[in-house]
Amino acid sequence: MIRTGTAVWLILVTAILVLLVSIAVCVTLGPVHVPVGTVLEVIARRMRLVAGGVTVLDDEIVWQLRLPRVVAAAATGAGLALAGAVLQSLTRNALADPYLLGISGGGTSGAVTVIVFGASGFASLGIGAFLGAIGALLLVFLLAMGRTGGLATTRTVLAGVAVGQLCSAYTSFVVLVRGDSDAARRILSWTFGSLAGVRWTEASWLAVTAVLAVLVILGFASWLDALAFGEDSARTLGVPVTGFRWGLMIGTSLMTAVIVSVTGAIGFVGLVVPHLVRLVFGPAHRRLLPLTAVCGAILLVWADTMARTVLTDREVPIGVVTAAIGVPVFAILLRRKAGVAR
């Protein structure tokens, strides 16, 4: 386990460089290959660092189609991984993430409801997704909360799975009864998760959300560390446990809702990345949070690239790719917890 401060920050800088290189390389990949040099030239021209020199087609492919999608993938991965790290700390359960706790499913149900009533636009979908995510979170807490008001970690995850299934059933029912095939197709895209069609407006929202979330949550790193020793110990250290937990839960739901309103439900990123980063670098949140965000961004950039390039005639839903990675890790975590229980 790497704990030395200098080594951790050196690895963080290296991870950021890997992310930037991944973004540049992934923009080149697709039905039409664009060299990395052309990608950099298009970006420099758009930022007014150089003049002219690229074709209209290259500019359209790089700047209008691929780059906003890759940036959105990076922001989505960072946000989901960060949300998973926070939820795992708040519930003290390594299996918690927005997908397993039903927050992503609730956000999807909220967005689906907005679609059913004929509303469109990023703001409307965002509001619907946020209300759905908050509603799912409240229902999870209601089911998981014990008589003393505490949250048992096992019950919280089980309640999240149940609420997620309820949201999935609601979405499936809407797809079946909805007569409009276009709306049904849009609803299905939310269910599987997709970054197709993302443009700079949505990518900018996602990027700003992810950066703000990292900065804000990083400011509470010491309080999250205190919670690792239990609620009583955290209160002794001056942490307002109840307000802090609810504030972060609501903030996490809001971030998840912003992501879901653009991408739909994408599972397992918040489960896999925080747990693996924690295994390598330890539980201290001052290093865990930024490393988790960067590693989540790298993972989803490549997962989305795989989703749009693995087949020549169609896209694979990105949720299928993340599930293919996340399910084996989830199974390993379950086996580890079973071994500890014995």
Rank of each mutant, 00 (worst) to 15 (best):
I2P: 09
G5R: 15
G5V: 15
T6S: 14
T6C: 14
V8R: 13
W9K: 11
L10F: 13
L10G: 15
L10D: 02
I11P: 10
I11S: 13
I11L: 15
L12P: 12
V13D: 04
T14L: 14
L17T: 13
V18Q: 04
L19Y: 11
L20A: 14
V21Y: 10
V21H: 04
V21N: 04
I23V: 14
I23Y: 07
V25S: 00
C26D: 08
C26E: 10
V27T: 08
V27A: 02
T28F: 03
L29M: 13
L29R: 04
G30M: 00
H33C: 07
H33G: 12
P35Y: 06
V36G: 07
G37S: 13
G37R: 09
G37L: 12
G37A: 10
T38M: 02
T38P: 02
T38H: 03
V39K: 00
E41T: 13
V42H: 09
V42D: 05
V42I: 01
V42P: 03
I43L: 14
I43H: 06
A44P: 12
A44I: 08
A44H: 08
R45P: 08
R45C: 13
R46M: 11
R46V: 11
M47K: 06
R48V: 13
R48W: 13
L49E: 08
L49Q: 10
L49K: 04
V50D: 02
V50P: 05
G53V: 05
V54F: 07
V54G: 04
V56G: 11
L57P: 06
L57C: 06
D58F: 01
D59V: 01
D59A: 10
E60C: 04
E60I: 06
I61P: 09
V62H: 04
W63P: 07
W63G: 01
R66H: 01
R66Y: 09
R66W: 04
L67D: 01
P68E: 03
P68L: 05
P68W: 10
R69L: 01
R69Q: 04
V71D: 05
A73P: 01
A73R: 09
A73C: 05
T76K: 03
T76Q: 05
T76R: 00
G77N: 05
G77H: 02
A78W: 00
G79K: 00
G79M: 08
L80Q: 06
A81S: 07
L82Y: 02
